[in-house]
Design a protein around this nucleic acid. Structure first.
Length: 449
DNA sequence: ATCGGCTCGCGCAA
DNA sequence: TGCGCGAAGCCGAT
């Protein structure tokens, strides 16, 4: 079980409480980071403190994403309190807040969770430098720890899949449940630390919109169970936006309110639908972490495979019959009624059917002056509007759509070159486009009336 | 409705 | 060195 963790510095362990800093995995259950931190604390007969560092305006997200995260975090705080584990919410960058926090707590060791993204990794490496105690990273998000699944960027799902299958039995295991923690802070230290916790009260107005999923681990588990009961049997029709057969779990997965491990354990089974869901949940989702972890240009043109860069360069000068500004895209004012409907659903709900997400992104390549602009606009809109924005899955999906990442070359066409194109005519062949547009219209009328 | 051509490169067999 | 095949397609021919 210790193979899920690795040290980020080489400091000596000190006597004192164990701190577990959570940033990507914000749940109390099915959390390998918390489980390993508690095991450490129990062995050393020490208190365990859980801490989160709050930053507003995180990577251009809308307030509703912030609210989703924070509401879920308060639920987690209550769940942890039942186990005698305080969750403190600090305000500020972790590498600035945590060294002082650890000194004040006389902490002996810090655990943290894992993210492959640039900013998250910078926090961890700066924190590892500043701390005088060990910083230990646990991949609490992926079923297979990212750095163990593969030691390089995988070319496609087909190269990653056998590595995942080989390791799955070793890692598809739930962590031990948290125990009611028997060791507490002395009362003076507790008071000193509470003074740092700026967020005792929930400052958020509850989101009254019924278009959006409900935040928190409890709602996540309910959504997982209703997916298993009602929609998993239809999962082979998930690419038809009208079927609404997809799991819709990504907002909870993104904020770590639901463990992929839990979804995998609950869904696991012999049917084709179960296998297809696990393929998406584990192979494809963790392939995104692999991409971002090993490709520092995960959100740039330079991160595309060389065949895609070459073909997109050849077609830079191609005529683009429609060009739209970021404002026009954001306002869903294009000449394509399907794209507009998908964008309006996104604005209203923070979500979009998975198949349309690819179409939506590829159209941005068609409608902007060059691939760099397309990628930048797609990332801006993705990170701002999707509840699961600012996630490796988003950067990998955009790089797949625009830059052929994890894909192969196809017949050469204008603007796209050899990158796979998607068209409105193609969508009409595959599903009832007008029915989808009408369903978005109807949802908007409901929301307003 | 279904099929084939388009086209690249990794991993593995030989 | 050759070969099979891949994360969601497109289009035209049959």
């Amino acid at each position: 079980m210790f193979e899920r963790q690795r040290p980020l510095n080489d400091r000596e362990r000190q006597p004192g409480p164990v701190v577990c800093w959570i940033s990507r995995d914000l749940r109390a259950e099915d959390h390998w980071g918390l489980a390993l931190a508690q095991q450490d604390a129990l062995e050393h007969k020490q208190p365990l403190l859980v801490v989160f560092c709050l930053q507003s305006a995180y990577l251009g997200a809308l307030p509703r994403a912030f609210s989703f995260m924070l509401t879920g975090l308060y639920e987690t705080k209550a769940s942890l309190a039942e186990k005698n584990l305080p969750l403190m919410i600090l305000e500020g960058p972790p590498q600035d807040m945590l060294p002082d926090f650890c000194r004040l707590a006389s902490a002996g060791v810090v655990y943290c969770d894992f993210s492959p993204l640039r900013l998250a990794r910078a926090w961890r490496s700066q924190l590892a430098e500043k701390l005088s105690i060990p910083l230990i990273e646990v991949d609490a998000h992926n079923v297979i720890p990212c750095w163990l699944a593969s030691d390089h960027q995988e070319y496609g799902a087909y190269t990653f899949r056998p590595k995942v299958s080989r390791l799955l039995d070793r890692f598809l295991i739930a962590p031990p449940a948290l125990l009611s923690h028997p060791f507490s802070l002395d009362s003076q230290t507790r008071l000193d630390l509470l003074r740092l916790d700026k967020r005792e009260k929930l400052p958020l107005a509850p989101d009254s919109s019924n278009a959006q999923p409900q935040p928190g681990s409890r709602a996540a588990k309910a959504a997982l169970q209703s997916f298993i009961r009602e929609r998993l049997a239809l999962f082979d029709r998930r690419n038809d936006p009208n079927e609404r057969a997809a799991s819709g779990l990504s907002p909870w997965l993104h904020f770590g309110q639901l463990a992929p491990l839990r979804a995998a354990l609950d869904v696991r089974g012999p049917s084709a639908q179960q296998a297809a869901f696990l393929e998406e949940l584990i192979v494809r989702r963790e392939l995104s972490d692999n991409f971002c972890y090993y490709n520092p240009a995960y959100d740039q043109f330079a991160g595309f495979p060389s065949w895609a860069q070459a073909t997109l360069l050849r077609h830079r000068g191609d005529l683009r019959p429609h060009l739209y500004s970021l404002d026009q895209l954001e306002a869903a004012q294009t000449a394509d009624p399907l794209w507009n409907a998908a964008q309006r659903e996104l604005s209203a709900s923070g979500q979009m059917p998975g198949y349309l997400r690819m179409y939506w992104c590829k159209k941005i390549l068609e409608w902007t002056p060059d691939p760099e602009t397309a990628q930048a606009h797609a990332i801006f809109l993705n990170d701002r509007y999707f509840l699961d924005g600012r996630d490796p899955n988003g950067y990998a999906g955009i790089a797949w759509s625009i830059g052929g990442v994890h894909d192969r070359a196809w017949g050469e066409r204008p603007v796209f070159g050899k990158v796979r194109q998607m068209t409105l005519a193609g969508c009409r062949r595959k599903f009832d486009v007008d029915r989808y547009i009408q369903s978005v219209d109807a949802a908007e009328r409901n929301e307003h009336g």
